[in-house]
Design a protein around this nucleic acid. Structure first.
Lengths: 353, 353
DNA sequence: TCGTGCAATGAATACGTATGTGGCGGGATT
DNA sequence: AATCCCGCCACATACGTATTCATTGCACGA
């Protein structure tokens, strides 16, 4: 019988044991370790020393049960609809890293889950119980997850969403300045001497982030007195394959263009593959810029000009905003700056012609 | 006063409330929902219906406190010593995804943490308390984390490690067949008509995975009657920068080579950048192969020939092995197959010369 | 008819922590 | 010098669940 639970963990010390050793009661130990002023400095230090020596650590379950706080945040990442089952949007990797770090610094645990895009309000509630709050990460068709947000509001679960900040959306959101970033990138392409700029990515309010980027693209064109040509826009979700397909579609239209702004780096990389297949030289014949600055952007050849989102800052803002909500404090939506990173894919047209 | 805890979550129903509604005692509810045969079918169904209707879910904290099981696994990812703070080894992203999925399928939660490489046995114990078991992910200098493994053994925490399976290592490990993979890749480079093959990556037992790959490389050469030339080996950890630097070092030695096996894709990509800078054409003048098959490998140009590790399978095996240990069952180390993926970077030398 | 045993349930309790409340003693206040 | 107050601590209890043990009722066999 004893064999089954063989390698049972060594019993961890409890606050009661420490109490016995210190010659005080268990509540005093609890208070001392939490730094309560009700305990004299002398006993507090004595208790601390014993706890240290025994490598005591508070039982999170018991503590959570009593305080109703889990000191855990949940991160729900919406899966991208990619055929490759392990391929998550690389941009989210970066976010995952920074969120993890931000949580650790604030002594919170992080529960991570990849979520199917299908509505699953029930599972959201579950996570709401296990964590003090939820961070939602994902972009794509807004209509798909809107019901989930409403359900979260209803169940009173605290949450923050990474995604376009806009009026009338449920809950709180943090995003980077998609409009500004895209405008800067577009202006840069124009500065490179390009005049006919294509845009690949959805340009509909169903995809708020992409739509903002599209608006930034249009604004930059307008600022130079250029008009948007709908023949130079093609829809694509944020995958390499979609970018590839959309670029092919553009090429088939036979409408000439000399610059390309992709709504994400994955799209840009897919588009560059299509261009290569059609022997369009980047950046000699055509300048390309993306968005996100995923790792592959700087590794690509030519290295991809893109708009960098400060994921480190984003992670911290997300976590801090959520913790404010958890503490019942006021929180606001946040728009973070986006920064243009110029690389080889957008080299200016040679001036000496 | 009430303002602070304003958006308090709606109080969740408890087993006691269900008991009242069903006209039974709380223990009966607990038994019924856990499927105990001690409860008659009639009452069980009645209780189930009420629980369903109230959207009841067991309080994980209370349950864990009672049963001493958290139904949670912890994933500790050793940070790579990269200057870029959000750049985690891309291969691990893939593993993270598959581990997350494997946990979800088995109804386990996953606690994710990125760990500094500095010894932190104390934090390991912490995670051991919060989770039923720990998955360790990381490669690099084995000497650095060996003490952590020993400490884990001492504290009786269940854990599985992703890393080279070898004799005399503490705990259980799962890895892919690094030797076979590297041998296949090397044989492929030879099949491409290359004869002087370089190897970039540590070739020391301090780095067990890389060492296995090096051994595979050497074995493939030996099989064709070729000898290993130490002038064609350069050390590198698994970063793009290290690969770049190592390739430059190789080039400076002025020892000619026409093929290159990198111990990881990141190294290979860095090396390809160095080659490009030195106007060495890949694959025309030199064939390159990597290891891991990270996302960037297929996006690179030329697309990188590499050895794919089946991360989906790996995640499942890791989780299953760990769960066996948790249940007190016997578990064994596992070596998973590795599969060569041929892409453009290794194109064979033209036959018609 | 009465005991025997099993099936089904309730009562009691423990898991480890956090906190409201009561009590004890000593210094300050009058 | 008696009172009051406050610092410091112990006692009791609750969080929600899972399990051990006692209890009830009922069918069955002798």
């Amino acid at each position: 019988m004893q064999g089954k639970s063989a390698a049972r963990k060594a019993a961890q010390p409890t606050s009661l044991e420490i109490a016995h050793l210190a010659g005080v009661s268990q509540p005093t130990v609890s208070r001392a370790l939490r730094g309560s002023p009700m305990v004299s400095t002398a006993t507090r230090e004595r208790i601390r020393a014993i706890a240290e020596q025994l490598q005591y650590s508070v039982d999170r379950n018991a503590s959570s049960l009593r305080t109703r706080q889990t000191r855990t945040l949940a991160l729900l990442i919406f899966e991208d609809p990619t055929p490759d089952d392990s391929l998550i949007n690389p941009f989210f990797h970066s976010m995952l890293g920074s969120i993890t770090r931000a949580c650790a610094e604030r002594r919170y645990d992080l529960l991570v889950s990849f979520q199917p895009r299908t509505p699953a309000e029930h599972s959201d509630r579950e996570y709401g119980r296990r964590a003090d709050g939820i961070i939602l990460l994902g972009y794509g068709d807004y209509h798909l997850y809107r019901p989930r947000l409403d359900a979260l509001i209803d169940s009173g679960v605290h949450f923050v969403r990474w995604g376009q900040v806009q009026e009338g959306q449920p809950g709180h959101a943090v995003c980077c300045d998609n409009f500004q970033g895209a405008r800067d990138a577009t202006a840069h392409l124009l500065d490179c001497g390009r005049r006919r700029l294509a845009f690949i990515g959805h340009a509909s309010s169903r995809y708020p982030e992409f739509f903002e980027r599209y608006r930034g693209y249009a604004a930059a064109l307008a600022q130079r007195g250029l008009t948007v040509d709908s023949a130079l826009q093609a829809d694509a979700i944020s995958t390499e394959e979609a970018g590839h397909a959309a670029a092919l579609a553009l090429l088939e239209r036979q409408v000439p263009f000399d610059g390309l702004l992709a709504a994400s780096d994955l799209i840009a990389l897919g588009a560059m593959r299509a261009l290569r297949e059609h022997a369009v030289a980047v950046p000699e014949q055509l300048s390309v810029a993306g968005f996100d600055d995923i790792a592959a952007a700087s590794l690509a050849s030519p290295a991809l000009t893109t708009v960098m989102q400060d994921t480190r800052l984003a992670g911290e803002i997300l976590v801090d905003t959520l913790l404010r909500l958890v503490r019942g404090e006021a929180a606001t939506d946040r728009v973070l700056p986006a920064r243009l990173v110029v690389r080889a894919s957008s080299a200016p047209v040679a001036r000496r012609s």
